[in-house]
């Protein structure tokens, strides 16, 4: 069964709109990282750009599929989507790849064996999973937890506002995963999770604006 439609009925459509914001933010960061790559020719920037591009595409797939299911554009397409979890699987796949790339870069993992292990575990978990929705958010929580911890360490080291924004944004994205899992208790948790996720992405957008359009004098 397709597991894209979640949350209370009145909230349906709102997360599609949120998805558009996520797409915009992730693509902006991907573009900035690509610019850094063009300037420095350092591969880490190109991988970082790819990670955010994958996140953007995954949110695009998520939003489009959700949008189709909500608006019932095509009855036949709905049947296909309801029969197969393809859309969600692709969404999962791209998101996991993105998180793993981000982990490899931020944790500065250099051993190829460790990289392969991460990919293998994530994909095995994804393929042999029946409760895609719950397991997706559980694995996402683990990946995001480690990313957040790394961004927190970075913030303690750099002590600047942009690093704090990145850490806070990822902290909220991590917390959101817990509430996505908690929807088995109440559908309202979905609203809370989606809202936390939205604030997280808004913080990343704010960080992007600060980098692109200047910062306050005297501020790090």
């Amino acid at each position: 069964m397709i597991v894209l439609l979640n949350g209370p009925y009145w909230f349906r459509g709102a997360d599609v709109f949120f998805g558009l914001i996520y797409i915009l933010v992730t693509l902006m960061i991907a573009a900035l990282s690509y610019k850094a790559y063009k300037l420095t020719e350092e591969k880490k920037y190109s991988y970082f750009s790819i990670a955010f591009l994958f996140l953007g595409i995954s949110y695009l797939i998520y939003s489009v599929t959700n949008g189709i299911l909500i608006t019932h554009v095509s009855g036949m397409l709905n049947n296909v989507l309801n029969s197969f979890d393809y859309a969600f699987l692709i969404y999962m796949f791209l998101t996991f790849v993105a998180y793993i790339i981000l982990l490899i870069i931020t944790l500065k993992i250099e051993q190829k064996k460790v990289m392969l292990l991460l990919f293998a575990l994530a994909f095995l978990f994804m393929l042999f999973s029946y409760q895609h929705y719950l397991k997706f958010h559980l694995v996402s929580f683990i990946f995001l937890f480690f990313l957040t911890h790394q961004f927190y360490t970075n913030y303690l080291e750099k002590k600047n506002r942009n690093a704090k924004l990145v850490f806070t944004a990822f902290y909220l994205l991590t917390c959101a995963q817990i509430f996505f899992i908690a929807i088995t208790y109440s559908l309202l948790f979905y609203v809370l999770a989606a809202s936390l996720q939205l604030v997280g992405f808004m913080l990343l957008a704010y960080m992007f604006m600060r980098i692109n359009y200047g910062r306050t004098k005297g501020e790090a």
Partner: peptide, 18 residues
């Protein structure tokens, strides 16, 4: 142009710490 973009890239790199 690199010098103009340098600060932007530096800020970006430091924000994510990579």
């Amino acid at each position: 142009k690199f010098l103009t973009d340098y600060q932007q890239i530096k800020d970006f790199t430091e924000s994510f710490g990579f």
